[in-house]
Design a protein around this nucleic acid. Structure first.
Lengths: 347, 347
DNA sequence: GAGGCATACGACAACGTTGTCGTTATCCGG
DNA sequence: CCGGATAACGACAACGTTGTCGTATGCCTC
């Protein structure tokens, strides 16, 4: 049989052996009130003796909950991001007795498979889902989740902050601070490598950079801002383009670490010493940035913490009605990570 | 209410509207035989009209299956590995209508929380689980999974290949080939950076390296083999140690890409040009190896494909008894990835 | 045309919980 | 000592499927 034939001890067996009704056993299991201390102890002892665990499907069917939280990605491509999100989400889910289900909306062939996503949503009966960027700004996805009546929290949404609870960090302020740090080292020609414009973080970081430069009274020439897509290769090309400028920038701020590593590779290829002749800083605190040489100065993005907070917000809404809280927003702190890839300019 | 109040259309509603029994609707849903073409079409039309989807919990309870496949990690630490595994597993799970649940055995505080794992196993009622290394060789974990009666597939197990179905790749042969490639370029002093000895892949790769050297009649001095732990930093230290040798190796083969990047960083720190003065090769084909300069020559490990195959093996065992297959082993192919970090030695 | 045998259904009982509500004891105040 | 509140249970019906088995119908065979 393909069936999951477990030990087969059910709530009925426990109840019979304890000489109580199944409802009382249920009360003990779920720590509900309405069971005396003595009965409670007796039932618990029998539960322990048989190592009885309630059947999840039956519980789900009866209580109309699944104890499943979905973490939805567009695709599982940026492994670092995916890993961080899951690590954080899993921490919170575990604490609350929920399981984490991974889903991606995009099909293997690259199509945006909304129909399949809706099917999953209906089939699995998630108690709640976490929508990661850029999905959390997609109208079709939001509509599908809402139509399915599933609670959701958005991670770093770009639009409609009032539409649903969300978690975020202040990318703009972090980028501003990162830029000012370069300025305070003495850099004046600071270039920027941007990210995809439909990505909130990318836009905010760029805005933070521009704001810092404006504050210092610098008009940023268009050629100082190179386009990128958050992948390393685009950083490499951006780096080559920026290094070809005359006068050459003394510092390059890449919108994320992957692109910063690309800039580093471009500098290595062209024999530009970092940080002596060029400072390079990134954003995200990806692990690869620790193994470059020089090690990458960056901003730590609290991705895991954001995911953890998101799941916690969901769980709080499922809880006992008396303690239920409806948190609508949570802001997490970033942290500047100073390593070796940025230094005062020479000459 | 915290309940998941869905649309509320059930199999009963469909049956009533179609003028058939619920069993017939069930037959249509599950493509069972025993329903005539005309009835089938009529029922399907009504299902489509109401966008009816069967309730997962009820189905699970009744059929004693959960349509949940667990992917179990020790911890979610190597993001690249985790991401690849999930990407592959998700592909296969989707095709078969299963959901992917992520679990880690190690608790947040670093303890090995077997009790919690057993609880999850019993609670969630996975139809099957995929055990990733090094969990797949842990006696306690194997015992727990077997005690719970859950089908499982092991990824790259180190021991007891007969105990359960598994997927693997030939790390030894790949490492041997990688080493011979360096030899054929003209390298004679080839050093190696090893990984943790409880990790099958690490041991096999080291063995492949040694075997290649033996085949070429080279006695490998002990100092040519530097210890590592698969993390980048250990590669950095290993690189520094190996570069200090006299005579210095002309090539360093790191047991994985992260450590290879560490070696690259050490070379950069000490002004050793790669690949002119030193060739460096890795293993895994991690994305970060593509953004180093020079780009890393490595071996592509088919992690995603292995995970995909593992889930497929599980699913095949759940299927219709008539077509059920019990595959016990599947070997995936590696692929050498030649990039810029290795070249013939000069002088 | 009788007998045998598929095929196409339906009735009904699981599956193992939780939710609702009723029924006892028990206690307390006046 | 009575009425009313409260706490501690139990009976029983959901929950929405799938599994088992019985039954009617049609068709083929000789």
């Amino acid at each position: 049989m393909a069936r999951n034939d477990r030990k087969g001890v059910t709530i009925v067996d426990i109840a019979r052996e304890a000489g109580v009704s199944i409802k009382t056993v249920s009360r003990v299991i779920n720590r509900e009130e309405g069971a005396g201390a003595e009965v409670r102890a007796r039932v618990q002892a029998i539960i322990d003796k048989h190592d009885y665990r309630p059947n999840a499907s039956a519980r789900n069917l009866s209580s109309r909950r699944s104890y499943l939280i979905g973490v939805i990605f567009l695709r599982l491509v940026s492994h670092h991001y995916v890993g961080e999100v899951q690590a954080g989400a899993l921490r919170a889910a575990r604490r609350a007795g929920y399981q984490l289900v991974v889903e991606q909306v995009e099909a293997a062939d690259g199509r945006f498979d909304l129909e399949a996503f809706a099917a999953v949503l209906a089939n699995v009966a998630f108690d709640g889902v976490v929508l990661t960027p850029p999905l959390c700004d997609d109208q079709d996805v939001l509509a599908a989740v809402e139509a399915a009546g599933v609670a959701y929290v958005r991670m770093a949404p770009n639009t409609e902050p009032g539409r649903a609870p969300f978690v975020w960090m202040d990318d703009l302020e972090a980028a501003r601070e990162q830029t000012l740090g370069l300025w305070d080292m003495g850099h004046r020609r600071i270039a920027f490598v941007g990210g995809p414009s439909d990505h909130r973080a990318a836009v905010q970081r760029r805005e933070g950079y521009l704001q810092a430069m404006r504050e210092r009274g610098v008009a940023v020439p268009a050629e100082w801002i190179a386009p990128g897509d958050f992948f390393g290769l685009s950083g490499f090309y951006a780096g080559e383009a920026l290094l070809a400028l005359d006068p050459r920038p003394t510092a390059i701020f890449a919108g994320n670490d992957e692109m910063a590593l690309g800039v580093l590779a471009a500098a290595a290829k062209h024999g530009v010493a970092v940080p002596e002749a060029l400072s390079v800083v990134g954003f995200d605190n990806a692990p690869a940035g620790e193994m470059s040489w020089p090690r990458l100065t960056t901003v730590h993005q609290p991705t895991a913490e954001m995911a953890e907070a998101a799941v916690e917000m969901l769980v709080k809404r499922f809880g006992d009605a008396r303690f239920r809280e409806q948190i609508t927003e949570q802001k997490l702190d970033y942290r500047l990570v100073v390593r070796g890839s940025a230094a005062p300019p020479r000459g």
